[in-house]
Amino acid sequence: MTALIDATGLEKIFRSRGRDVAAVADVSLSVGAGEALGIVGESGCGKTTTARMLLRLEDPTAGRIIFDGTDITTLRGAALLKFRAQAQLVFQNPFDALNPRFTIRRALAEPLNNFGVPVSEHAERIDAVLHRVRLTPPAAWLDRRPHELSGGQLQRVVLARALIPGPKLIVADEPVSMLDVSVRAGILNLLREARDALGLAAVYISHDLALIRYVCERTMVMYLGRVVEEGPTKELIAKPAHPYTRALVAAVPVPHVTQDRAQLPIRGSLSDAASVGGCAFRGRCPHAMKICTDQAPPLRSITPTRQVACHLEGAML
């Protein structure tokens, strides 16, 4: 299976107040049709920036993105518009993701207009997509405006808007973190269903590893703008290889009384991050060695499906 989207060596350096901030230092990823990739990592590690580059909402300062066989890294104009129809985003905050003045009908018709879908098809497609996100009967929702909907209902509209152009790739950046716990499950199920039914490639971003496990077979862990580990989600949770992933997995609380409450295998905090050269995690790593200061560990395969960027060897991994 060839990947639908294939990004290599993505880098994004922001220049703020004369200082360069490498939001993303070096990220490569690929996602095939019907596959879901999760991206986890602590706040500020560059998850959102990576997603925005994949969607061409941010221009990478280095790297290349191939989408469906075409290099989209520097697309403009009509070609970019054609790409936009195929790669859509589900936003984090449903209360802010819809133009407050637009009715649901208008919000859904707009992408169709922009992407040149004949007006004669609009009604049918809007109807179908509202059924897909379970806002039924569609007629009851079409003329409402965002402030008349609850958070969960709004997120369904946001999902519908992303699905209506018939994309091949969906990126969802923390799609349920702003929603109430009782309605999160509904949105996650819709995302899963839509991917299965339409054979979409999906990228999910979240702090929450449990949520990622629910929707993604494969997961990528980021730390300070780099990929530190990648592999099948369940394996990665059951047997995390990178010291950071181990701390991350150990830190997730589970909804049962019996659980591991041992001290986390990590030191310091993000502000103790090492600066230049070597492994970026060494300031917090309980296993840091001399080589970790001298050399940045490359991302390497430890099994056919798993990759990790750490100098540890064999049983230590």
Binding site: R84, A97, N99, F115, P165
Partner: peptide, 25 residues
């Protein structure tokens, strides 16, 4: 605002974002 970015993702031109989405606000 996220809905301005959403307009970009859903294919609105810069002019359309400015005059159809932002201007009325």
């Amino acid at each position: 605002r996220a809905w301005v970015e959403a307009a970009r993702v859903t294919g609105c031109s810069t002019g359309r974002i400015m005059f159809v989405h932002v201007l009325p606000q």
